[in-house]
Design a protein around this nucleic acid. Structure first.
Lengths: 199, 199, 199, 199
DNA sequence: AATGAATGAGAGTTCATTCAT
DNA sequence: CATGAATGAACTCTCATTCAT
């Protein structure tokens, strides 16, 4: 009888729509993903969509915020570690694990192309900043521990690690036969090789 | 007497439109780049656009074909070289030079997100194939000469070099302060380090 | 709770748009009848139009299908008749009644000129076939009963009756003062005279 | 050396364009007949078109005027005749002969649908008026000679003869197998039967 | 006289968003 | 809460027409 919103039900519905959106955006790009197509995929009416998200961009922001939140969770999980190299390896492993969902690469690619929509750019930047902050923190510690090269400052090393992790995601989205399973070990080795530095 | 087609004038106009399109697509993405905006940037009327390109996709295909043709030109320039490593370094240097045009990264990113439009996908694939074929050819020779690692076959090495070169382009498009000038040497060193293999 | 589709409301809206289209097409021809003009006449927004019909051609096909369906209804009404001449007179009377809507002639004329759009041509042919089939059937019976001339086969007689009925419709659309009311009896007499044959 | 226009050459070019237009309009309708298509058919450049006709409508008016002029020529040829029925038969025979050009039916049909363009409507009306005037004149004489029915005034008889002649043209344009050759005699007989009147 | 490159108004169509039910 | 009919701004593309050559 209670007219109160069931927060659990509400959140479940939200995630259901986000999941559908991930699928559709990954397959067709952001502009190609019409709200109608997302609603069809989610099995809801068009009105319901706007009941859960204020605008189409609002949905995108929610997805990006979800990703940024996951970086925070990862940071918390690593907080206790003493060994910088173990933390950096964990970060790389997490990236490989994320890449196992074939939609992620397509989604990243699709969203990267949304440069208008200032709010999306800001959210993208926030996500990037969170990733870089986490990396820079552990890279700094690793440099202090003499475990990674010091010819480049930690934030530039972070840029290059991001280059490798992002490039990896996009390769998977782009190239037939380039899979997280097979190429994951090469990524690990390449990142570590890069951090070890030239000889 | 009759105003015959001046092929030179025609080609110049075409390139002018393509240049404007590069600017606009790079800034707003493919879907965000309306034909009206491209026309405004190029300083032409809307009808003129469709006088030079059959459709908006036609313009995209023309740009991609231009890029693929440039790979062919690079291949020809390298054909005479005897030293595989010199050729590979030349390929990397070319990528760094391309990345100096700040629009290229944004354009690549924008176009990578155009998954519908089968013809664009095909052209993108053709471009990718041309790049990979060139790389694979010289990587194979380098392996035969014992100059690069052999724990991975040449085509997988090519995938990883492409990952680095593409990632480099996109970093420049994305990250403030990550410039071709400053990071180019790191790219060179990283590619060569990767090809040298682990120790 | 949910606003389910009310099929009655939906059909009413459809007919409202079709009615507006009849008016506009009849007055300006098919190409001259812009979707904007039809929407204005129907008092709806442009989006609503495409909510009810997939394309402008789709609307045309729907109108033609409606007409063809009416031929079927007429055929059913006649099915019980024993007297061929009574059926043929009924067909002529129906044509006269149709011609009372002054838009019908203009519409027929306008649509007859749509030769591209293969689907429209097919629908037009289907409509023509339905009319001819009905006529040919009753003309055959009338010939067997010795009530109409036999110097021409039934299907050629059908062509000529169609010529008279169509021509009648178009005269009304074209000629000021040529009205269904005044000229209807002449049509009746002329068709019957033609079917009786020369003397 | 004289810069004077060669009127013969000019007129020939005009007729060449009109002929091409007849072909294209007959096949695609008036709106479907783009100036570009007409130029292609005529083997001229787009600029040349507008050198001979001020607008696309201007071309249409020229064609219609040509047709109206032919009615005048027919009227002159008949002027000497003493026998009204012979003149009327000649008019019908002329219609049958016109119908032998398969483009005429399609053209009439196409143009009949151009109801906007007030000037075209006026030209169409002038053509119709010329036809009716000629018919009415001879029908009046025939009535005075007691050779055709008098239960309808001459101008209404003219309407019905026009109905038959127009319908004949359109049938040919519309119906496969309905040819001027085969159906011409039936037309003759039907017109004369109608004029003889009921019994 | 003849050309065709250039133009821009206007066409059909899509789609995010609103709101009565 | 949930719906989907209704909306109109904005898009790509067509085509009659102009004009420099």
């Amino acid at each position: 009888m209670a007219r109160t919103v069931d927060p659990q039900r509400h959140e479940a519905r939200r995630l259901q729509i986000i999941d559908a959106a991930l699928t559709v955006i990954s397959a067709r790009g952001y502009e190609g993903a019409t709200t109608a197509a997302i609603c069809r995929e989610a099995g809801i009416g068009s009105g319901t969509f706007f009941h859960y998200f204020p605008t189409k961009v609002g949905l995108l922001l929610a997805i990006l915020a979800l990703g940024t939140a996951e970086v925070g969770e990862l940071a918390e999980r690593l907080a206790d570690l003493d060994e910088p190299m173990a933390a950096l390896e964990e970060i790389v492993d997490q990236a490989i694990a994320d890449a196992a969902d074939p939609r992620v690469g397509g989604f990243v690619l699709a969203v990267a192309a949304v440069m208008h929509e200032p709010k999306a750019v800001a959210a993208l930047q926030a996500d990037e900043d969170a990733h870089r902050a986490l990396l820079t923190e552990w890279l700094t510690r690793a440099q202090e521990a003499g475990q990674v090269r010091t010819d480049l400052p930690a934030d530039r090393l972070a840029s290059w690690v991001r280059l490798l992790l992002d490039g990896f995601l996009e390769r998977i989205a782009t190239e037939e036969g380039f899979t997280a399973e097979r190429e994951g070990p090469v990524l690990r080795e390449t990142v570590l090789g890069f951090l070890a530095g030239a000889h």
